[in-house]
Simulated assay, not measured.
Amino acid sequence: MHAMVLKIGGSILEKLPDSFYEMIVELKNAGICEPVIVHGGGPEINRLLQQLEVNSPFVDGLRVTTKEVLDVAEMVMSGSINKRIVTNLQKAGGTAVGTSGVDHSLLKASPLDPTGELGYVGEVANVNDEWLKVIINHGGIPVISPIGIDESGQRYNINGDMAAAAVAQSLKGKLALISDIPGVMETIDGKQVVHTQLTKQQIEAKIMSGVIHGGMIPKIRSALNSLSAGASESVILNGLTPADLKNYIEGKEAGTKVMTDKEAHHV
């Protein structure tokens, strides 16, 4: 199975053209890859929290999640956003199945921060990939909301990039983090350039210098972590130009490919 896990960030969801969903369905129908979608929902969660006057600060790009914030995050992501993506894929002619990490214990979670400072923020301890394979083998495109659950039934909000990395590892597939920018960008000699590939060493240096900052930090770290734990490859791609996805799958230059220092020596 050539699994291709696509993480769609909340910031880009409202901007994605119909052609993006059509491209995913086309790749599935042509047997080029088996797409699996993991999505976020940050901006919509923020809007609802503001309406409800619920405070929700961030620490290192991760949302501090109280029980109240968790309920809102689940409602937005597993409810409206998940079904919107499923609808868009089906409008494009695909068969999509919306699921959350809670369903069938798809994303078995544990607390990310043992000190409790982040609240109900989890990390993925295990992925029930058998459930995903059932959906895929019956012609479906899984669409996953990153709310996880532990043995006791406690739910956790999981960073979408981290959840996508765990799913890619589990399926031994490639991971594409879909963004609204062409990749990791830097201003060099007054010009904006996109880094076509970055190693772990280069990434750490760019985080230290502030070139990579904010929400891009968990994104790029997830791309790296997915490699060290078994994903075959990871890349940050621009979803606003769907051809980038096709170009990447066909081995052409697109986005920012993230690689281990060892891999870079073979390039």
Rank of each mutant, 00 (worst) to 15 (best):
108 K>S: 12
90 Q>H: 11
158 I>V: 07
240 L>R: 02
8 I>L: 10
236 I>Y: 10
100 S>R: 02
214 G>S: 15
120 Y>Q: 05
153 G>S: 00
191 K>H: 13
245 L>K: 11
168 A>F: 06
114 P>Y: 09
49 L>C: 01
148 G>Y: 04
213 H>F: 14
251 G>C: 12
211 V>E: 10
194 V>G: 00
19 S>E: 09
71 D>L: 14
168 A>Q: 09
19 S>V: 00
24 I>R: 01
77 M>S: 11
58 F>L: 15
105 S>A: 14
198 L>W: 03
115 T>N: 06
33 C>G: 03
27 L>G: 00
193 V>P: 00
26 E>V: 00
5 V>M: 07
154 Q>E: 11
256 T>A: 11
267 V>A: 15
63 R>V: 06
11 S>E: 05
18 D>I: 02
159 N>Q: 06
28 K>A: 03
79 G>S: 05
74 E>A: 15
68 E>G: 05
197 Q>P: 01
81 I>S: 08
95 T>A: 11
260 T>D: 07
92 A>Q: 03
210 G>M: 11
178 I>R: 01
80 S>Q: 15
46 N>A: 12
46 N>T: 14
74 E>N: 14
134 V>T: 13
20 F>T: 01
47 R>I: 02
86 V>G: 08
170 S>T: 05
14 E>S: 14
112 L>A: 06
185 M>W: 04
176 A>Y: 10
202 Q>T: 09
260 T>C: 06
154 Q>W: 03
23 M>N: 04
188 I>F: 09
44 E>Y: 12
62 L>F: 08
123 E>C: 08
187 T>E: 12
29 N>W: 03
103 D>R: 09
218 P>K: 07
95 T>W: 11
33 C>Y: 02
83 K>Y: 12
261 D>N: 13
35 P>E: 02
2 H>R: 14
52 L>Q: 04
104 H>R: 14
77 M>I: 11
188 I>D: 08
229 A>V: 04
247 N>W: 13
160 G>Q: 04
193 V>W: 03
182 P>E: 00
231 A>N: 06
109 A>Y: 03
